[in-house]
Amino acid sequence: MEETLTREQLLDMYYYMKLTRMVEERLQRLYRQGKIVGGLYRSLGQEGESVASAYALEEGDFLAVMIRNLGALFVRGVRPWEVFTQYMGKGTSPTRGKDNIVHFGSVERGIIPPISHLGDLIPVMAGIALASKMQRKRSVALTYIGDGGTSTGAFHEGLNFAAVLKLPLIVIAEDNGYAYSTPKHKQMAIENIADRAIGYGIFGETVDGNDVIAVYHATRRAVERAREGLGPTLLEVKTFRMRGHAEHDDAWYVPRELLEYWQKRDPILRLETYLKEHGMADETDFEAITHRIEQEIEADLQYAEQSPMPDPRIALEGVYAETPSVSEVAPLPREHAVRTRS
C-alpha cells in the first residue's frame, strides 16, 4: 500500500515548483536587462518532475542535477541567492565565479554538480551508489538525463555498470521532446526510453512527468527498491520543454500545437486543480505562497546584485589541494626570470 501525500507535502511541492518558475522568470528579466553572464536555461513546464523526484529522497541521499532541474536543487535546500549569484558570476556565488548556472553543490549537502558533457554523471553517481553499498549506508544516488543525453556512451556504460553491481541508483530520464533542436525520433528509434531498462536487466517505468504525484510515487518506489538492494531504476518522465534550449533560441522548430497541448498540462496548474478539487487548498493559499516567494526573491536578488564580482586573482586558486598551484611557485635560479602572473 502506497503512502498518501499529505496536504502539507503537496503544498510543499507546490512551493518548490512555483519558486522554480518565479526564480526563472526573474532570471529571464535579468537576462534581458543584460545582468546575466552567459546563457539562461529554463525548465518551464518541467518543474514538476524535478521537484517531485527530488522530494522523494531523504536526508543522506545524493542528487545530481542537469540544467533543467533547478527545482530539484531547491528541494535539497538551495536558496535563490545562490542561483542569482551563479548566473551573475559574482564572487559570493557558491563557486566564487568559477562556474555558472546550476553547476554547484557540495558533498555535505548531497548535491553533486554536473559537467556539461551529457551522460557523464551516470557513472559518477553509480560510484556514489557503490560507496554507499560498500559502507553499508542506506543512501541512494539519483540523477537526471534528457532524451538526447541517453544517446551517449556514458549513459550506457553507467547504467550497465550499475545494473551488474546492483547499485542503489535512480536515473530519471526526461523525455521533453527536444534536445536543442533535435526531436526525440532523431535521437532514438523507440518511443519510451524506459524500454531500455529491460536490456540492462533493471527496473524501468514511464510516468506522466507533469503529474507530480505520479512522479513522486514512482521515484519513491525506485528509492525503496534501491534501499532494499534490488538495484537501479530507469524512470522515464514524459514532459515537455516549453521554451528554447536556452533564451537565445526561440524554438521556431517546435510545432505550435505541441506547445498548446502541453500548456494545458502544465504541472503547476495541474497541482492547483488537484488541490482545489480535493478541498485541500484554494486561491488564497496559492496567493499566500506566491507572495512569500516574491519576498524571498526580492531579498535574495538584492543581495546578489549588491554582491561584488570575484577578485581576479582567485582564478589561479584551487587547481590542486596544495595552493597555490605548484607550477606558479617554481623556484627560479635567476632573479630576472620571466615574470609569472601574480
Binding site: I112, D120, P123, V124, A126, L130, F161
Partner: peptide
C-alpha cells in the same frame, strides 16, 4: 574491495570519481 567490472573504462573511472567524492 577488488571489483571485476564490465568493459567500461568510462564507467570504471566515473565510478571511481563518485566513490572518491564520498570518502573512498
Amino acid at each position: 574491495r577488488v571489483i571485476d567490472t564490465p568493459i567500461s573504462e568510462a564507467a570504471i573511472v566515473g565510478a571511481a570519481i563518485g566513490a572518491a567524492l564520498v570518502g573512498l
